[in-house]
């Protein structure tokens, strides 16, 4: 049986798709056969981040409607043969998805794949609901600012009450916090919430902190998941996240201010 991971947040623009692409690639690179599904029907982005937009023929909605089979729609990643992408439809909207159809596709994928990563759209409406409904694990992507934290909290409430696991009274979805676009300098100067503040409000198992980094934008523009940029801080942070998710112990990195470090080093004020 596959493990179904939803990458979700409530708020938009916090890094869900970047995270979905990075962790799917990270899991596949470690030899686990992984599928990543774009649930953002109508605002398809995952294919761009994964650099496979030129190879999209059939999409998720075609599979749900029976217009194509899963093997026709799945796109094999060009960097890693253990990774497959199921793109969203750009010409439809979220109503084209339905609970039963999504369940059928996930069940079929489960036979063949070890991990299925569901890239949730923003919001708490139908698309986000369908993306999280069948999940076993949830990566809650949060930026260190109050509105993102509150939206994540709302999403956690939905995960705990409206998912399949909640409805069937099964063991609840495992929830993990992923703090993205973290800028230690701005935290130090009080412009951003610190790691401790976010943890206090959400009290969630922290899977990792991804620093604000130019490498993320560069990776998106070139269609290569940032985790493959092994020299970048964000890439390394995502590699740590994947390692921690798989049970390895890794100390947190990229959470201390460089200015603070220099100040300590030179004994400044």
């Amino acid at each position: 049986m596959a493990r179904i991971i939803v990458v979700t947040s409530g708020k938009g623009g916090v890094g869900k798709t970047t995270t979905s692409a990075a962790i799917a690639m990270g899991l596949a690179k470690r030899g686990h056969k992984t599928a990543v599904i774009d649930f953002d029907v109508g605002l398809r982005n995952l294919d761009l981040i994964m650099g496979c937009e030129r190879r999209v023929v059939y999409d998720f909605v075609n599979v749900i409607n029976g217009e194509a089979n899963l093997n026709q729609a799945l796109i094999k990643d060009k960097n890693c043969n253990q990774l497959y992408i199921l793109p969203a439809s750009q010409t439809r909207d979220k109503d084209a998805l339905n609970l039963e159809g999504v369940g059928r596709v996930l069940e079929e994928l489960s036979k063949d794949f070890k991990y299925i990563v569901c890239d949730s759209p923003a919001g708490i409406e139908k698309g986000a609901y369908l993306a999280m409904y069948y999940a076993d694990d949830a990566f809650v992507v949060t930026n260190p600012e109050v509105s993102s934290v509150r939206d994540s909290d709302r999403m956690l409430g939905i995960l705990a009450s409206k998912s399949r696991r909640a409805e069937l009274n099964m063991e609840p979805i495992k929830e993990y916090l992923l703090l993205t676009r973290y800028d230690p300098d701005r935290v130090e100067s009080g412009e951003m919430l610190g790691l401790d503040d976010v943890q206090e409000i959400l009290s969630l198992h922290l899977l990792g902190v991804i620093p604000e980094s130019k490498s993320v934008l560069n990776a998106s523009n070139s269609g290569i998941p940032v985790i493959l940029d092994e020299k970048s801080d964000a890439g390394q942070a995502y590699a740590d996240v994947v390692a921690r998710y798989l049970g390895e112990k890794k100390p947190l990195r990229f959470i201390d201010s460089k200015k603070g470090f220099l100040r300590k080093l030179f004994g400044g004020k």
């Binding site: 509150r150 909290d153 709302r154 409430g157 939905i158 705990a160 009450s161 609840p172």
Partner: peptide, 8 residues
């Protein structure tokens, strides 16, 4: 025993 989240 579980956290009561925003919106609940």
């Amino acid at each position: 025993t579980q956290p009561v989240r925003s919106g609940q």
